[in-house]
Amino acid sequence: MRWASWALCALLLAACASGPARRVSEPTARIQQLTVLADGNWSTELRIENFSSIPMRFDSVQFALSVDGQDAGTLAAQPALTIGPESADVITMTLSPSVAAKLAVADALARKRGLDYTLEGTVAATPDEQRQREYKLKRSSALSPTPGLPGVLR
């Protein structure tokens, strides 16, 4: 009987030592806010989401942005930003958009209508205590004018 009790205690202790599973999932990115600046450039808030069960350091992002089917330009940054498990954070980038993209955004703001966009590119991220990985991402979504904030789409 005593031997069985010791064996049960050893099994319980071994089960506790294994800890939670360390899952690395593909991150995502989306535009949280696009603001048209006075000089015609755009301030773009990019929301990066870490769905992994461990922290990840986001070393670089590079996305081709198109709005209403018009190529706007490239969003690129080296944020060196660590995002905790199953969390998100925002980085702000400035973009000098193409003329066609400027017109598409100006039209959407003037008509108070939504605007489709597509991000396509890569995110380089390093999972906690592992080697860097590059993720290819493509996201299509929409932005809408923000009431009370002229020149802002969310």
Rank of each mutant, 00 (worst) to 15 (best):
A7L: 15
L8Y: 02
G114N: 05
A88S: 15
T146C: 09
R30S: 13
S66I: 02
A17G: 14
M93P: 00
E134R: 07
Q70A: 15
G73K: 03
N50L: 07
L34Q: 07
R47K: 11
M56K: 01
A100C: 02
P85M: 09
V36G: 00
G19K: 09
A100P: 02
A76Y: 01
R22P: 03
S98G: 05
A100N: 08
S60T: 15
S96G: 05
E45V: 09
S60A: 14
R57G: 14
R2Q: 11
T92V: 12
T92C: 10
S141D: 14
M1A: 13
A64G: 09
F58R: 09
K136D: 11
S141W: 03
P79C: 06
R113S: 13
P20T: 00
D71I: 08
L37R: 03
V24I: 15
W3I: 08
V36M: 01
A108H: 06
S87R: 15
Q130T: 13
G148N: 05
R30A: 13
E26L: 04
P27T: 08
A124N: 10
A64E: 10
E120D: 07
L34N: 06
L46G: 03
E134M: 08
K102G: 01
T44Q: 07
A14S: 11
Q130Y: 03
A7M: 13
G84W: 04
L143D: 05
P27V: 06
L109V: 09
P145K: 04
Q130P: 03
D128Q: 15
L46Q: 04
G148Q: 04
I54N: 08
Y135D: 10
A15P: 01
T74Q: 11
P27I: 03
L75A: 05
S144A: 14
R139S: 02
Y117H: 08
G73F: 00
Q78P: 09
A38N: 06
T82P: 12
E86C: 00
W6Y: 13
T122P: 00
Q33I: 00
L95K: 09
A142Y: 06
A15G: 11
A124W: 02
D107S: 14
F51C: 00
D89G: 12
G40Y: 05
T82H: 05
R30V: 01
R111V: 01
A21C: 06
L13H: 00
E86Q: 14
A106T: 13
L81H: 12
R133Q: 13
E120S: 12
G69Y: 13
W42A: 03
A108S: 14
A4V: 12
D128W: 13
P55C: 11
S25N: 11
P27L: 02
G114T: 02
L95A: 05
S141V: 00
S96I: 03
G148F: 01
L153R: 02
W42F: 02
G151R: 00
D116P: 12
L34S: 06
D89L: 11
L75Y: 02
T118Y: 04
R133M: 12
P127T: 10
V67Y: 01
W3V: 11
W3T: 11
T74N: 04
E86S: 10
